[in-house]
Simulated assay, not measured.
Amino acid sequence: MSLKGKTLFISGGSRGIGLAIALRAAADGANIIIAAKTAEPHPTLPGTIYTAKEAIEEAGGVAVAALCDIRDEAAVQAAVAQGVAAFGGIDICVNNASAIALTGTLTTEMKRYDLMQQVNARGTFLCSKLTLPYLLHGENPHILNIAPPLDLAPKWFAPHVAYTTAKFGMSLCTLGMAEEFRAQGVAVNSLWPLTVIDTAALRIAMPANRSQWLSRSPQIMADAAYAILNRPARDCTGNFFIDEEVLRAEGITDFSGYAPDAGDNPLGADFFIPDAVFEHSPTRIQHRP
Rank of each mutant, 00 (worst) to 15 (best):
S2V: 08
L3R: 06
I10L: 03
G12L: 08
G12Q: 00
G13D: 06
L19R: 09
L23H: 08
L23W: 05
A25I: 00
A25E: 07
A26T: 07
A27D: 13
D28V: 05
G29F: 00
G29E: 00
N31R: 04
A36K: 01
E40Q: 09
P43I: 08
P43R: 09
Y50V: 11
T51S: 15
I56Q: 05
A59T: 01
V62F: 12
V64P: 12
A65H: 00
A65N: 05
A66W: 03
L67E: 14
L67K: 02
C68K: 04
D69L: 03
I70C: 11
A78S: 08
V80H: 08
G83P: 03
A85T: 07
F87I: 03
I92F: 10
V94S: 11
V94Q: 02
N96Y: 10
I100M: 09
I100R: 02
T107G: 14
T108A: 13
Y113M: 14
Y113F: 15
Q118T: 12
N120P: 01
F125G: 04
L136I: 10
L136M: 09
H137Q: 15
G138K: 01
I143T: 07
I146N: 13
A147G: 04
P149F: 04
W156M: 01
V161D: 00
V161K: 05
A162K: 01
T164A: 15
M170C: 10
L172G: 04
L175V: 12
R182Q: 12
A187H: 01
N189E: 14
P193H: 10
L194S: 02
D198A: 14
N209A: 12
R210D: 12
Q212G: 14
W213R: 09
L214P: 04
Q219L: 10
D223S: 01
I228D: 04
N230I: 04
N230L: 10
N230W: 07
R231F: 04
P232I: 05
R234P: 06
G238H: 09
E245N: 10
E245M: 13
R248E: 02
A249P: 09
A249H: 08
E250M: 07
D254G: 07
P260G: 08
N265P: 03
N265V: 06
P266I: 04
L267T: 03
D270I: 03
F271E: 15
I273F: 00
P274C: 05
V277C: 01
H280C: 05
S281H: 06
P282T: 13
T283V: 14
T283R: 14
R288L: 15
